[in-house]
Design a protein around this nucleic acid. Structure first.
Lengths: 208, 208
DNA sequence: TGTACATCAGTGAACGCGCGTTCACTGATGTAC
DNA sequence: TGTACATCAGTGAACGCGCGTTCACTGATGTAC
């Protein structure tokens, strides 16, 4: 994996984003003070404001960073599954298996999804944030939908099926699973939900 | 439906809670100022503080109110399904159908779930809030699990199945569906997800 | 190779405003005798 | 039936602190000539 070399300024900015993401996913954007973030990232107030125009500018940067990162992770897992398996259905099932394992291997609980976090915050009322969220979610759906099309072609489902809704369900399960995990304060709910989805997809497509 | 008659004080308190719930689900707890709530509920600052010790006291009240209300709604729908249909599987499927219709009939989008909202807010760090969330989620799981047990008894599933995870999936789908709905700013995602789950459950249990 | 200037990546102190909370006080309704 | 007292359901003004933002200033690194 090629690690990009960062300039001094870029490194500081990245350090701020990293600290901010962690705290924001824990407590929410409004409840996170800039001073907390500065402390955690070891920059002064003015150091921070050199990199971000204001708090909302940080909000945008965090969301974009999150969506990009998540999409990249997903693509990597899909590529790995494809490298192992030729059949679209079984590659998809392998992806879900690997995905659940990644969720299970996290040292602590899943830290949360930035899109989901903003959905329950007033950040969502800013036009730019709303558009970035919407686009992120649509990108994810598209990734799954392509796969499902290939599957449905080789394994015609018994009944006609809403493939967009099924593609979305992958996102739904992750977002909902994270909440289950956080809400019940019990690790493991998320990977179990992903595996459950895997079983259901398998039953749906695999020939009896 | 018996509507309880409220005393003057109870009515004011209820008015405050209603306004607070709406705003908190829109913008998040930390981003919601008490003054906003007071304005919306038409009480003065001191009127508010007569009913709630502090902001955190309001947070607890909102969560409890939400969990109770949601549980009651769910029970009512289950009862209606049972009144119509004797078979546990088909009653369950009818429940999911009615549930998706309720979600679809909402004038606007689903306002959101208070448990999920707090999960992404620092409220979750207060012990009492965490316990109330956990108990709410477990109550919901138990309701679904009972139904699934009855179904699995009459319709033995082909493969052994994680019934707790399947029970949880009902919650996951709703929580995740709400985020999909909010995140994509597109009404209808939530009911579609519920119907998709219904199809999957049907395929899983219904004899070929 | 040295000098002048510009840009990068910050520092430290001050400001002002919103927001949660407190406090002393009050009119209306209930209750005891 | 009237009086005294208590409780309910508030009012209005003041306080103080945290937090986002601004501003004048600065040392180190790059770039032109």
């Amino acid at each position: 994996m090629a690690v990009k070399v960062l300039s001094k300024g870029e490194a500081t900015r990245e350090r701020i984003c990293g600290a901010a993401e962690r705290i924001v996913l824990e407590k929410g954007f409004a409840a996170t003070s800039l001073e907390e973030i500065m402390d955690a990232a070891n920059v002064t107030k003015s150091g921070f404001f050199y990199h971000f125009r204001d708090k909302h500018d940080l909000a945008k940067a965090l969301l974009q960073r999150y969506v990009d990162h998540d999409t990249r992770i997903m693509d990597e897992l899909f590529e790995r599954a494809d490298a192992l398996i030729d059949d679209p259905l079984h590659s998809y099932l392998a992806f879900l298996k690997m995905f659940s394992e990644v969720m299970d291997d996290l040292p602590d609980r899943h830290p949360g999804c930035m899109v989901a976090s903003y959905c329950y915050q007033d950040q969502i009322y800013h036009r730019e944030i709303r558009e970035m969220s919407a686009e992120g979610v649509l990108t994810w759906r598209r990734r799954f939908r392509e796969r499902l099309d290939a599957i449905a072609k080789r394994y015609p489902p018994r009944a006609p099926i809403d493939l967009d809704a099924l593609a979305d369900m992958n996102i739904t399960i992750v977002e909902g699973g994270i909440i289950l995990d956080k809400g019940r304060a019990e690790k493991g709910a998320l990977p179990r939900q992903v595996l459950m989805l895997r079983d259901l997809v398998k039953t749906l497509f695999a020939p009896a």
